[in-house]
C-alpha cells in the first residue's frame, strides 16, 4: 500500500493532482481512498490531500508518520507536512516559495531557503524540483501539479509509470488544456531522469 500526502497552498492545483494519481491507480486495478481540503482553506491557506493506494483500505486519512511519499508544492508547506512522513519515506518538493501575508506584514520574513536546508538534512529520499525552470518551461504556474506528477511517476515513486499517468491525464483533462499539461508531464519526467534523487540526508 502507498500512503501519499499532497500539500501546498490553496489555488496551486493540489486537488487535481490527487485526482489524477487516484485515476491512474484505479486504472491499474488498485483500490483508492483519500480525502481533500475543500472550503475556506482553498483561498490561499494550507491545503492537504491524503491519497491511499492499495487494497482493503479503511480510513480516508493517513496517520502521522504514515506517508511513504509527500509531494509538496511549496517548501514551507513541505516542512508543515513532515510529521506525516514515514521514517524511510520519500519527498518531492517544489522549491519556489509562495509568500504568506502574515510574513509580509512583518511577523518574521519567510525564509524558504531555511526550509529546504532543513528538508535536505531531515529527508533521505528528497527530490527538489526547480520551480523557476518548471514555470518557465510550462508557460506559467497552472500546470505545476502535472509537472510534479511527471517527476513522481517517472521517478518510480508511484505505483504507475509516466505512460499510465498520461492515460489518466487524457481521461480527466479537458481537450483544450491537454497540450500544456502533456508538456508539463514530459518536463517533469525529464527532470526526474536528469536529476537522481538527492541522497545527502541521513
Amino acid at each position: 500500500m502507498l500512503n501519499l500526502i499532497i500539500t501546498g497552498v490553496g489555488g496551486q492545483g493540489t486537488v487535481l493532482l490527487s485526482r489524477l494519481i487516484g485515476q491512474a491507480a484505479l486504472d491499474k486495478g488498485f483500490d483508492i481512498r483519500g480525502s481533500e481540503t475543500i472550503g475556506m482553506a482553498q483561498r490561499g491557506g494550507s491545503v492537504v490531500s491524503h491519497v491511499r493506494i492499495g487494497a482493503d483500505i479503511l480510513s480516508p486519512l493517513i496517520p502521522p508518520r504514515g506517508a511513504g511519499l509527500i509531494i509538496a508544492f511549496e517548501p514551507g508547506e513541505a516542512v508543515r507536512a513532515l510529521p506525516f512522513l514515514a521514517t524511510r519515506g520519500a519527498m518531492v518538493v517544489f522549491d519556489r516559495p509562495v509568500n504568506a501575508v502574515t510574513s509580509a506584514l512583518g511577523g518574521g520574513a519567510y525564509d524558504a531557503a531555511a526550509m529546504l536546508t532543513y528538508l535536505r538534512a531531515r529527508v533521505g529520499r528528497l527530490t527538489v524540483v526547480d520551480g523557476a525552470r518548471t514555470i518557465a518551461a510550462c508557460g506559467g504556474a497552472k500546470a505545476i501539479n502535472v509537472a510534479l506528477l511527471g517527476v513522481a511517476a517517472a521517478g518510480g515513486l508511484l505505483p504507475f509509470d509516466r505512460a499510465e499517468a498520461e492515460r489518466a491525464l487524457r481521461a480527466r483533462i479537458p481537450a483544450r488544456l491537454l497540450d500544456i499539461n502533456l508538456r508539463a508531464l514530459d518536463f517533469g519526467a525529464a527532470l526526474a531522469a536528469e536529476a537522481p534523487r538527492e541522497r545527502d540526508g541521513p
Binding site: V9, G10, M40, A41, Q42, R43, G44, G45, S46, G76, E77, V79, R80, L82, A100, V101, T102, S103, G107, G108, Y110, D111, A114, M115, Y118, R122
Partner: peptide, 11 residues
C-alpha cells in the same frame, strides 16, 4: 525544525 509561516485563508 524551522517554523513555516502561518497561512490562514486570505482574500
Amino acid at each position: 525544525a524551522p517554523s513555516p509561516p502561518a497561512r490562514p485563508p486570505v482574500l
